[in-house]
Structure formats: structure tokens, C-alpha cells
Amino acid sequence: MVGVLEGWHAMSETTYDDLLARVRELVATTEGRVPVVGITGHGGAGKSTLAERLAADLGLEEDQVVATDAFYATTCGPDAGMWEQCDWPLLEAVVRGARTGSERLRYDYRWWGGETGTEDHPMPPVLVVEGIRLLNDRTDAWFDLAVWIEMDPDAAGARAKSRNLLQGDDRAELDLWDTKWIPEGHAYEQQERPRERADLVLRAEG
């Protein structure tokens, strides 16, 4: 994984500083509710790195960033369809809570391995949501600012495999990148055209 900003550069003159300025403007001008920022890209493209950097610069706690990795559906697994991995209604409820003035960022989480629990934190001044496949027909009205990280699924997947190998993933988990995650990344990009749905596009170097 690249460092905080190492590897990021402008695409169509969009930079991290542009993103930070846009989010700060949202916080200053959105009244009566919390603005929601979505950061998405293929697995391994650097979504978490970017979201964590943005959160730190905005004064948010790490636990106040919402990751789709905490919303695996009960149907998730190697044989699940592309849209069956995430509990979309639960994630939508979190976004709706921010938009309707909830004072707490509270949700039940479920990790890939089935571990469950509850997160409960003060609602931040801006809700940052990061994860794969965030831009689609269902989520069109979710985000005040949608950010796409431009990186080819194969390059992103190769980087993710290297990262996960260092994290100790077994061979079966690593092989899923070649048999599932990377092919689904190509399919998602072709079907949903996330780059065209995004308000800002940043390119990550592989």
C-alpha cells in the first residue's frame, strides 16, 4: 500500500488538495444535516489510505470512517454474486442517519469471517464512506461528493494480493483475487461506469 499521499497525482487537474477543499466547503455550507462523501475504487486501489488521510485532515477519529468491509452480508462468500457481498440496506440506513440528523454513528457490523458487533460513535461533521462498488444505481442519491480512484482492476488486484500476503492471508483467500475480485472489478466497471458517476477522479499509481 502506498503511503498517505505517496503515489497520488492529478487527473484532469484533480488533486488531493482539491478533494480536501471540496469537502471542507461541504461541511461549511451544508445546513441541517451531515454531508456524505463516498470514496470508491477497485480492491487495492487505495481507498482506505485516502479515506484515512482525509479523515485525519478533517479532525475525524479513525472509527468515524465507515468502510463497506464492515457490512458483509450473510450471503457473502466465494460463490456469492457481485451484489450479494454487501448488506446494502444496512449501509443505506447509516447514510440515511447522517442525512436525517442522527447524533450517533451507530451500526451493527459483520466482517468477512462472520464476526459481528456494534460500532457506536459521535456523528462526525462529515460522513466518509469507503469501499468497492459504491457508485451504482441504488446509491445515486447517497453522496454529496463521490470520489473515484482510477486504477486498472488488474493492477489494483496485484497490489492487494501483495498486501494481503504480508497480512498472512492463506492461499485460498489470495486466489480469490484472480478468480473473483479482479474479474468482478472489470464487470462492475463495464456495467456501472463509476468514473462517469463520480464528482472527482483521482488516479493512483500502481
Rank of each mutant, 00 (worst) to 15 (best):
G81L: 05
G81K: 05
M82E: 05
M82R: 08
M82I: 14
M82F: 05
M82D: 05
W83N: 09
W83V: 04
W83G: 01
W83M: 09
E84H: 06
E84T: 07
Q85D: 02
Q85G: 01
Q85C: 05
Q85Y: 01
C86P: 01
D87N: 04
D87T: 04
D87S: 06
D87G: 04
D87I: 01
W88D: 10
P89R: 07
P89G: 11
L90S: 14
L90Q: 08
L90A: 15
L90F: 03
L90N: 10
L90T: 08
L91M: 14
L91S: 05
E92H: 03
E92R: 08
E92T: 04
E92L: 01
A93C: 06
V94D: 10
V95Q: 15
V95T: 07
V95D: 06
V95M: 14
R96T: 10
R96L: 10
R96M: 09
R96W: 07
R96S: 11
G97P: 06
G97L: 03
A98G: 10
A98R: 14
R99T: 01
T100E: 15
T100S: 13
T100R: 07
G101Q: 11
G101P: 12
G101F: 11
G101K: 08
G101Y: 07
S102G: 13
S102P: 06
S102H: 09
S102V: 04
S102K: 15
E103M: 09
E103R: 12
E103D: 15
R104Q: 09
R104P: 14
R104A: 14
R104K: 12
L105C: 06
R106Y: 01
R106H: 04
R106K: 09
Y107T: 10
Y107K: 09
Y107W: 10
Y107S: 11
Y107M: 13
D108C: 07
D108A: 15
D108M: 01
D108L: 02
Y109E: 00
R110G: 02
R110D: 09
R110E: 08
R110L: 07
W111K: 15
W111F: 11
W111G: 02
W112G: 02
W112E: 06
W112A: 13
G113F: 01
G113R: 06
G113H: 05
G113Q: 03
G113W: 01
G114E: 11
G114F: 12
G114S: 08
G114Q: 07
E115M: 13
E115K: 13
E115R: 15
E115G: 09
E115L: 11
T116N: 09
G117T: 05
G117Y: 08
T118W: 05
T118L: 10
T118Y: 03
T118P: 11
E119C: 14
E119Y: 10
E119N: 11
E119I: 14
D120N: 12
D120C: 07
D120A: 15
D120T: 03
H121F: 05
H121M: 02
H121Q: 08
H121P: 04
P122W: 00
M123E: 03
P124Y: 02
P124H: 02
P124V: 05
P124A: 03
P124G: 03
P125H: 06
P125G: 05
